[in-house]
Design a protein around this nucleic acid. Structure first.
Length: 258
RNA sequence: GCAGGGUUAGUGAAGCGGUCAAACACAACAGACUGUAAAUCUGUCGGCUUAUGCCUUCGUAGGUUCGAAUCCUACACCCUGCA
């Protein structure tokens, strides 16, 4: 399959430094970034989702950010289609596509070429394991060709410290105002507000939780989320785990030369 | 000082003579995941070890009972009503 474009994929837990690494790789290898993130797709949700800054976006083109409004429903299938389109666009412009994200399902939808049945065909609300067979087939088949998958892994306590710091920064950068604005405009039932860093404010605004308690809760929920991400990525054996991000340059260099 | 309430596993909190290694929640640990995925769901959670098994736990020390986290006594610490 010489025709399929090369894609560098960067995965890892939240706050592991994926975005920074992606930016660096994009600069070094003339790339553009595709965000595989189920929350940064939403407009106006910037602080709480740790969305790449405007400055970063000016330097390097980021795809699939701000593509829908907080009251809209989004889906993996939509993501897959858009991501494939973006990969095509980027590589036809002779640039390197860099897919970055912590949303394992979104990444895998592209990487393992998920085939979705028609919308609404299946109600799988209880996470019934009836798709196990299909899923296994997909994973043994392996990922799509011409991909390099880099995973960022930090020691647990270091990651927790980074999460704590990041949450504190979010609060300093007006997270509470951002949440308020979105709630006032779209209401708590909006799909986008069922997000760590946002939903925890419900009790704060209702007056039953202090700001400190809210921040603690966000931290704890983020730890839990990171754990789920770890579990998800663990099963993908083709990920090349790095504890030292600087090694990524070599990996990408050899990948591009083969 | 007198009267009353409390002390339970990592935390919070049930239990108030047997079916209690002790509900439940949270955390912790592990896992699942194909159109909500920063979502949703599952398992383990005193120790030994994996057994319809044993051992050690419910502030501390004794006691009553066939049998106590549960009743009694003393002590320690904490909160409250009267001084």
């Amino acid at each position: 399959m010489a025709s399929s474009p090369k894609v560098v994929v960067i995965v890892g837990e939240t706050a592991s430094g994926k975005s920074a690494l992606a930016l660096e790789m994009a600069r070094k290898f003339d790339g553009e970034i595709i965000c595989a993130d189920s929350r940064t797709i939403y407009k106006t949700m910037d602080v709480g989702t740790a969305k790449p800054s405007k400055i970063a976006q000016k330097q390097i083109k980021h795809h699939l950010l701000d593509i829908c409004s907080p009251d809209e429903k989004f889906s993996v299938a939509k993501f897959k289609a858009l991501a494939l389109k973006a990969i095509e666009d980027i590589s036809s412009g002779n640039k390197l596509a860099i897919l970055v994200g912590g949303t394992g399902l979104y990444v895998d939808a592209v990487l393992f070429d998920y085939q979705f049945s028609p919308a609404g065909a299946r109600k799988n609300l209880q996470n019934i394991r009836h798709l196990k067979y299909q899923e296994l087939k997909a994973y043994t088949k392996g990922s799509i060709p011409n991909t390099l998958v880099i995973g960022l892994q930090l020691p647990k306590d270091e990651l927790e410290q980074r999460i704590i710091n990041r949450t504190r920064l979010m609060f300093e950068n007006g997270l509470s105002k951002e949440v308020k604005r979105i709630v006032d405009k779209y209401g708590w039932q909006s799909p986008a507000l069922n997000t760590i860093g946002y939903k925890e404010f419900q009790n704060y605004f209702a007056g039953s939780k202090s700001l400190d308690e809210t921040r603690e809760l966000i931290n704890r929920n983020t730890f839990l989320y990171a754990k789920r991400q770890r579990t998800w990525f663990k099963r993908n054996k083709s990920i090349q785990w790095l504890d030292d991000p600087s090694r990524a340059v070599d990996l990408v260099t050899t990948f591009l030369n083969t």
